[in-house]
């Protein structure tokens, strides 16, 4: 795919697995995710299970290809109003969130709570591709590893794929079979199995 003044980018994701993307701040990782989610102007061919992006309606595409921004915003009066199906108590407990957090006013959420609830909010739409922009950046090590396994379990059970942007090589090694590095808006393979496509 191609967008802005970038050189072409070729990338393939597989079901049930994550591909990690490392790179300096400002190297364009977030822009790439927003382009894949079709939130900014971009050109190129994107296919999901053999169907082109244009054959999906914009809403369908964005529901299927969930995007988790680095900074998560909340706009309704309560946290719960952002969900279509309220998350299970067990899921909340796992992420160390009380059940009442769904009734909270979003402005009282801490950065970490925003991020944890944001992950649940994205999974709530049951996407088959996840675009994750540093999903654990504001979490401590313990909750971070819980969030990691929550996402990995989702990928496995739903046969979903993920493009996972992270700053941590250790996290990349834990969650992904393949890792790319983004340098000056060019992708190169940084580790793992050989790249295809």
């Amino acid at each position: 795919m191609q967008f802005l003044e970038w050189s072409a980018i070729d990338l393939e994701l597989e079901a049930g697995r994550a591909v990690c993307l490392l790179g300096e701040s400002g190297s364009g990782k977030s822009l790439l995710l927003r382009a894949i989610a079709d939130l900014i102007l971009n050109e190129g061919v994107l296919e999901l299970n053999g169907r082109t992006r244009e054959s999906f309606s914009p809403q369908e595409w964005r529901r299927t290809v969930g995007y988790l921004p680095a900074e998560i915003f909340w706009w309704e009066a309560s946290v719960g109003a952002h969900f279509e199906r309220l998350p299970m108590e067990a899921e909340l407990k796992r992420l160390r969130l009380p059940l009442e957090s769904l009734e909270w006013v979003p402005s009282r959420l801490s950065m970490g709570e925003r991020q944890r609830l944001g992950i649940l909010r994205m999974l709530d739409r049951q996407p088959s591709v996840l675009l994750l922009d540093e999903p654990t950046a504001n979490l401590n090590d313990e909750i971070s590893s819980v969030a990691e396994s929550l996402i990995l379990e989702y990928l496995e059970s739903r046969e979903a794929a993920a493009l996972w942007v992270t700053h941590s090589k250790a996290q990349a090694a834990r969650v992904a079979k393949r890792t790319y590095r983004m340098l000056d808006k060019v992708l190169e393979l940084a580790g793992g199995e050989g790249a295809e496509g």
Binding site: R34, L39, Q59, R62, P69, F73, H82, R121, M122, R125
Partner: peptide, 20 residues
């Protein structure tokens, strides 16, 4: 802008995303 984009990212239509 950021809020509208996140609403769209969750599958809302353009109309829903700017309704308020």
């Amino acid at each position: 802008r950021a809020i509208i984009e996140q609403r769209l990212a969750l599958g809302q239509s353009s109309r829903e995303s700017i309704q308020p």
